[in-house]
Design a protein around this nucleic acid. Structure first.
Lengths: 141, 141
DNA sequence: ACTATCTAGTTCGATATCTAACTATATCAC
DNA sequence: GTGATATAGTTAGATATCGAACTAGATAGT
């Protein structure tokens, strides 16, 4: 178990560093993650909802969204249904960034698909999801 | 592929945060990693060798070792065979820390073993190692 | 032997993340 | 309705990590 977690930690570190290098405009993969989430699943989501989707703290998401907002890639509006809350919307520039980021990363992903046994990698997904769900449900326990 | 990497990233984040909370003396899991490495495989290794084992930069390892040295958990000596290099040795306090850290983390790992399908998790190891090796060999490519 | 290149380690600046403390709004109990 | 508790988001402080620039020592080519 420890062995597996260790391997996962190293992979994540290598992958993150690699993808960060490829991100346009000096942005971080976490920024892409948020934009990608909003593009794929639709915008108008709350910061907390996005934080939970990525399993980061709301403080971290607040920071990430502030950066994205500074760059004009997203816009935060008051939630009309809840005075405490905000809703995050993509801007036109945000959608352009999404396209460019995908283009920057896609070649590396394709090369990986060609050089690794994709079937085995996809076969790990259910087990990885179980592991994630367990860790999520037992936080701070 | 992206899906899998994303899942791995989230697992690593949750696991790191969780284990960091459990580390004695406010130390970080990366500190434990180094001490554990030296305990299991023997000390008297170079900083760069340890950095490569964990796939972090030498700058990061320099920082980590400085912290461990401040706390008296390791000792850095000049390498008699190479004037540029140093060798890292565990202190008695370092070995005590190792015992305490193991004790702090073991229950959580055991609970995981009981609640998850350990066989499937171990079965992922070869594929994870391939993935790690690929990323390692294609850094900055 | 000398010079150019490579390697080991450190230092510096930037940044993503965490926890903890704070503000403001919602909800619930009575 | 009013007060206690819970939730959304922000801010402050700490730290691990990275890349780049630097120093010092080793190695190779001529």
């Amino acid at each position: 178990m420890f062995e597996t977690l260790n391997e996962i930690g190293i992979i994540q570190q290598l992958a993150t560093t690699e993808f960060n290098r490829r991100m346009p405009d000096g942005l971080h993969i976490s920024h892409f993650g948020v934009i990608n989430h909003l593009c794929r699943l639709g915008d108008g989501r709350t910061p907390l909802g996005i934080a939970n989707a990525f399993q980061v703290t709301k403080a971290t998401m607040s920071h990430t969204l502030a950066r994205l907002s500074d760059r004009g890639l997203v816009e935060l509006k008051q939630n009309p249904d809840d005075g405490r809350s905000k809703l995050v919307y993509l801007t036109a520039r945000g959608r352009v960034f999404h396209e460019r980021a995908i283009a920057a990363v896609a070649p590396a992903l394709e090369t990986m698909d060609e050089n690794l046994d994709l079937e085995k990698i996809i076969a790990m997904l259910p087990t990885l999801r179980e592991l994630r769900a367990y860790l999520d449900n037992n936080r701070g326990a």
